[in-house]
Design a protein around this nucleic acid. Sequence first.
RNA 1: CGGGGUGUGGUGUAAUGGUAGCACGCAUGCUUUGGGUGCAUGUAGUCCGAGUUCGAGUCUCGGCACCCCGACCA
Length: 419
Amino acid sequence: MRQSQLFTHTRREAPRDEASKNAQLLIRAGYIHKEMAGVYSFLPLGWRVLENIMRIIREEMNAIGGQEVHLSALQSRALWEQTDRWSDEKVDIWFKTTLAAGGEVGLAPTHEEPITAIMREHIASYRDLPQLPYQIQLKFRNELRARSGLMRGREFFMKDMYTFARTEKEHEELYERVKQAYFTIFRRLGLGDRTYLTFASGGIFSRYSHEFQTVADIGEDTIYLDKTKGIAVNKEVLEESVLADLGLEQDKLEEVRAVEVGNIFSLGTRFSKALGCVFKDAEGKERHPIMGCYGIGPNRLMGLIAELFADERGLVWPKTVAPYSAHIVALSDEPAVKNAAEKVYQDLQQANIEVCYDDRDGVSAGEKLSDADLLGIPLQLRVGMKSLKESAVDVFDRATGEERRVPLTQISETVKSAI
RNA sequence: CGGGGUGUGGUGUAAUGGUAGCACGCAUGCUUUGGGUGCAUGUAGUCCGAGUUCGAGUCUCGGCACCCCGACCA
């Protein structure tokens, strides 16, 4: 990507109407555009980051047997009435509208109903199970109060997987499988060392649900953390009987703020029963699949990662989600510099490295470097006369601040080994 | 939903009821070329609607939008 062709521009100042650090930085860097409270559009750089996050999630869901689908956002009233989740008293975050032809529809806040209705048409035998359909799709929730930039929106992407199992035992195996995949995802996103499995309220069919909570000051949740055991309890369920049940001791717990980055639930047969989703077991007897649901919010992850790793100069992306692996910065318009930078750009592209090249004319070195810091691409390749006198480029690590001079002939290998 | 606050060029801001100004950006020219270079010229604005007034960015009423705290978040 040639930066001279990128339509987004950086800004010196954050917009007045945005108080959260993640949205301020992402808007200043041109990653996102605020459409209205709690609703953001993703611009070229931001979309690349979001896609990277979704790609990692997708890879791990596929790795455990997930099958990707894409369900409709528009939902029929009749379907949700079958599970008694249509009325605004039961679910108060519906966006609803009417069809010109008559009849009411809603914008899906979650997808248990439609996925179960679909599985009902395709599952008939125990031989058809288990199944792990999932999707990454927009969800709509008419929150009374959106806040914290990308952390809590009214329209947001969600990865939602649903599992359909034959038996309770099989359900538990699937549940565990997804749980492990979640740990892998958060590790790959750079959040592994501060994300904890957290016990939270379970709903009707199990004592607990499990949240994945990333310790961060900006978190909306308060959790009690046992670092030696590596697990936590959400404040909402903290009581003596719970601690006893989990083998935790009150005085060894640390109270911290955390961001809920994932949540997994056992649903039992709540939906399969209500919607008549059945299969015949080996004895020919009709049974309802045992279900689970598993959510991750890519938008929230992007906001969290942006805010968590940023420094006073701007964004600092982990290598796995960065919009580009390397950022070539031509420090002047002198032909020698431009030619050398151009050559590096060609070389890296040939080496299949995702690279952004700041080839803008008439922009000072200082401004380009400030922009590069703000954009937060992991490696900056600073091409200027100083280093070119030694036939080299200065490779700057955005996260550590380390800079080293690398001969032009070794740039591709150096970048490749660093990403 | 309860409480508090804010709406001025693209962005950030200033203006006792009396000529809407500054900075950044953007455009043009010169200058500069390893941390937002300097200069000149230009561009562009009072959220919407009523009302009070000789006169409203400023006061009143209504609406809309945005932010924060709380509540809510199977």
